[in-house]
Nucleic acid binder design. Sequence first.
DNA 1: CCGCTTTAGTAAAGCGGTTTAGGGGCGATC
DNA 2: GATCGCCCCTAAACCGCTTTACTAAAGCGG
Lengths: 346, 346
Amino acid sequence: MSRVTISDVATAAGVSKTAVSFAFNNPERLGHATLERVLGVAEDLGYTPHPAARALSMRRSGTIGVLIPQRLSTVFANPFVSELIQGLGEQCEEHDLTLLLVPPLDGSLEGAIRQASVDGFISIGLSPNDRALEVLDRIGIPTVLVDSDGSPGHPAINIDDEGGAHEAARHLLQLGHRQVAILVLPPAREQVNSTPTATRRLAGYRRALDGAGAPEPVAVVAGISVAAGARAFESLPKGKRRPTAVLAMSDMAAIGVMSAAQASGLRVPEDLSVVGFDDVPASAWTNPPLTTVRQPIVEKGRLAARLLIQRMKGATVESPPPLSTSLVVRKSTSRLINSDLRNKGR
Amino acid sequence: MSRVTISDVATAAGVSKTAVSFAFNNPERLGHATLERVLGVAEDLGYTPHPAARALSMRRSGTIGVLIPQRLSTVFANPFVSELIQGLGEQCEEHDLTLLLVPPLDGSLEGAIRQASVDGFISIGLSPNDRALEVLDRIGIPTVLVDSDGSPGHPAINIDDEGGAHEAARHLLQLGHRQVAILVLPPAREQVNSTPTATRRLAGYRRALDGAGAPEPVAVVAGISVAAGARAFESLPKGKRRPTAVLAMSDMAAIGVMSAAQASGLRVPEDLSVVGFDDVPASAWTNPPLTTVRQPIVEKGRLAARLLIQRMKGATVESPPPLSTSLVVRKSTSRLINSDLRNKGR
DNA sequence: CCGCTTTAGTAAAGCGGTTTAGGGGCGATC
DNA sequence: GATCGCCCCTAAACCGCTTTACTAAAGCGG
């Protein structure tokens, strides 16, 4: 009762394996009568070509891999990936491709890469000196990087992280904030120090804050989860050096900060302004709705997939210019109410 | 400059292909000296076994497929899947498996199933008479159903939809609501009328509402997206028959209803109570925080994967009892303030 | 009726691995 | 000194499909 193979169909229909193969992949090479017969027999027997055999023979598997830098449970806690997959998926469906999620197996992303039977890879947030990249071009699978630094061999899709971050920080400055805390993105993988994305955003924040009469901002590393954001809030300085605003690099972390702040009795934005990064859909429904830097995530996925598919067809493609970001001002930021001044006024 | 194959390594190391294969899969069958040498040469040449060839030969691909009933862009708009994947992923990583997302290709889920080189399938929300199921057991790939009706051949993971729904409806009744609208889940796939899940939840709502002195509830089909929820709100009866509460079958739809209601000047929960279903993380941060029926989504994924892996090992497994749900009362529901009574009081 | 092009179908060689059955060498056993 | 067993290693079959020749028959103009 094992699987029906092409030979079974061939003998049942009284033709060669070749004929059966042609019936499916090259129907015009068969006479009308035999074509019908073969297809009929195949249907009756419930024949389905074995995907692995097909992939081996055709040198193409019809799937593209998504390199997930961390455990699925941590990465999928951030709606960012969901959005990205929506973009990737749209293109995949259009080109009859399926999507393979490739997280580190047994702690090793390299190992997982080798195992994966794919025609191309999309990597998320890989740092440019990650060893996984070596493996990738050693086995010569076309790859498109998302949120990394591009290299000659690998086109990269990026957004204007620096600009977006700069705009966010300036927004806070304009509202009068000077005591600002930065929630830094954690490294995508254990080995590296920090993602290119985090580096660029930090640079953007700094460029705005430096020389704006603001004291050196406190920087706290926070994961991209709500819980991590909440923990980060707890570790913020209290008392005199308490920040009046926080820049979060991820909406999830920002939401965590808001929750924790509110739980501790602070009001957002009156006592603490919070700005996120990404503009995931949930940011619009939070309480208060989150001020954040919008990036076109779905579009990013779409673009990445499109480029990868081109590469898979043999084209050489360049990294496109960074996608632009925009500040979405909602209700989680407000003008600083200087409590010191108010106190003096009494 | 094509790929390095096992033969390349074999000749370079002066051994047979078998020896190279053993070096990787059966190292104890080789002498220490040759083992080292082969491994060394392989490393130098950058050899990586071809996954498809391996899969063909070993009859196992090391990946499990997730059958997505609709386009990725619509399915991944609901955090439910993200949560589910977290659960699936945890088990996959533990067993060195990768996860293949299989949406309908060219409109056909059956076709996509055939293409997929996987060792097992997890299906989401398939109705028991879906043609995809036939294909599945014709090619004899072990499958575990999530949110479907189980059948002898296919174990199914479910929650107590009926009970959860009943509890939600009773909650509204206890708060005094009688004019209740139900947002019905749309069918998972075009062909079928409605998912088993939707049917069971509806039954739960009905059992509570029937004979509770409530008029026949209005039922509106709403997608699982926020936008669909908003649209559903618009199509609710106005005026005298305006519902004072809505039961949503999905948190996303519930959030859509809240937004739309608030946008139209209604207050939640004072003017309209809303209850969701699922308790996705975002429900806790909405404004107001959403009252909803909690189901253990991550656990569901974990369990499904665990069962599937057992099946893949040859064990026959039964459908486990439905996972239990619980009502999480937050701030989107409140006691009915009967405006008619209030008017009379004047 | 003959040579030439199409047409319809096939045999066999891959694709790149794994695995079974077995062979050569060599020290230990009797 | 023949025999046995053990340790290493290999030849060859196989996994299930695609594809490149190639052949036999049919069609066709002259």
